[in-house]
Amino acid sequence: MAPLKIAIPNKGRLSDSCLQLLRAIGLPVAGVGRTLVSVVAGGAVEILFSRADDIPEFIDLGAADIGLTGSDLVDEAAADVETLLALDFGLCKLVVAVPEHSLMKKIEDVPDAAVVATAFPQLTRRYFEAHGKKLTVVAVSGATEITPYIGVADLITDLAETGSTLRKNHLTPIATICDVRAVLIGNRRKCAEKEKEVHEIVAAMASVIAAKEKRYLMANVPKQALDEVRRLLPGISGPTVMNLAGGDGMVAIHSVVAERAINGLMPPLKKLGATGILVLPIERMVL
C-alpha cells in the first residue's frame, strides 16, 4: 500500500498549529523548514510541505491524498475536494473594509465604478456579483491594507481576526464575506481508495479537538452528597462513581467537565465535603 500523503502549509499563520495537531495524533514531523517531504509512522505517512494556497489544487489533482489549509483558500480555488473535518484554529473572517472616513458604510453604498484590492479575487468577485455589483478587482499578494492610501483601490477585502490590523491602517469593516477556519480536505478518489487510513486520521484529529477544552476531574465525595454531585457534574453521561476500599462513607467520582467550568466547581465540591480533588488534561476524547 502506498503511503498516505498529507499536505500541510510550509509557513504562514496555519503552519505551527498544523504541526502541533500532527504531533498530537502521533505524527511528529522532523526537519521542518529543511525538507519538502517528511516520512513518519514507519513510512506509512508522508508529510508534504507546500504553500497553503497550493494545497487545495494539489489535493484536487491527487498529488496529495489529504491536506490541511484554510477554508478561504479552498473556496478561492473552487477546488473539487471533500471537506473531511473543520478544525479549531485559523479562525477569522474575510471582510470588506473601507477607509475610516469613507462615505461607504454598507455594501449598498459601494459604487460600480469602485476598485477593490484583494488577495482573494475570485471570492471577492463572486461576493460583489451576488450583491449586484460589478467592481474592478485588483489582485495583490500582500500589504492589501495600504492600497487605498496609495491610490490603487477604493476599498479592500482581507482576512481579519480581531480587526486590530485594520484599525492600525485606519480601515473599517463594513461587511463579512465568509467565516474562515482551518480545514482538513481530501481528494475524493484517494479518500475512497484509502478509506481506512483516512478515517483513522480524521477520527484521531476529531478526538484531539474534542478533548482540548475538556478536563478530567477526580474527587472523593461523601455518599450522601452524590445526588448533589451528579447535578454539579453531569459529565458525558453522568460522573463515574466507584467505591473506595475502607472508604468510610466516601466514594470516588470521575467526570469529564469543560475547562471553563473548573474554577466554579471547586467551592461547591469542597462545600459538599469533597477531598483529593484532581484535575487532569485529556489528550483525546472519542464521543
Rank of each mutant, 00 (worst) to 15 (best):
K5R: 15
I8L: 06
D16L: 09
L21R: 07
R23Q: 12
R23L: 10
P28M: 04
G31T: 08
G33Y: 08
R34C: 01
L36M: 10
V39M: 05
V39R: 13
A44G: 03
V45L: 05
E46Q: 15
F49I: 08
F49V: 08
D53V: 12
E57T: 15
E57D: 12
D60H: 15
A63M: 10
D65V: 02
D65G: 01
L68G: 02
D72H: 06
D72E: 14
L73H: 01
L73E: 07
V74L: 13
V74P: 04
A79D: 11
D80C: 08
T83K: 15
L84H: 03
L85P: 03
G90E: 08
C92K: 13
C92E: 15
K93T: 08
L94K: 01
V98G: 08
V98D: 09
V98N: 01
L103I: 13
M104L: 14
M104P: 06
M104H: 11
K106F: 00
K106C: 12
E108F: 03
D109R: 07
D112W: 02
D112L: 07
V115N: 06
A117K: 07
A119H: 04
L123E: 14
L123H: 05
R125F: 01
R125V: 00
R126W: 01
E129V: 09
A130T: 08
A130G: 13
A130V: 01
H131P: 06
K133A: 07
K133I: 06
K134F: 12
L135W: 11
T136I: 08
T136C: 04
V137L: 07
V138K: 13
S141D: 15
T144K: 01
T144W: 01
T144M: 07
E145N: 12
T147D: 07
Y149S: 09
I150V: 15
A153F: 04
L155S: 01
A160F: 00
G163R: 02
G163K: 00
R167N: 04
H170D: 13
L171W: 00
T172M: 12
T172C: 09
P173E: 07
T176L: 00
T176F: 00
L184F: 04
I185P: 02
A192T: 11
E200T: 07
V202H: 07
M205R: 12
V208T: 08
A211V: 05
K214A: 06
Y216G: 00
L217A: 07
L217M: 13
L217P: 02
A219F: 11
K223W: 05
K223M: 15
E228I: 02
L232C: 05
L232K: 04
L233Q: 03
P234S: 11
P234A: 10
I236P: 00
I236N: 00
T240L: 14
T240S: 14
V241D: 02
L244D: 10
H254Y: 09
V256C: 07
E259S: 12
R260I: 15
A261C: 09
I262Y: 13
N263P: 00
M266E: 06
M266L: 15
P267C: 06
L269Y: 10
L280V: 11
P281H: 07
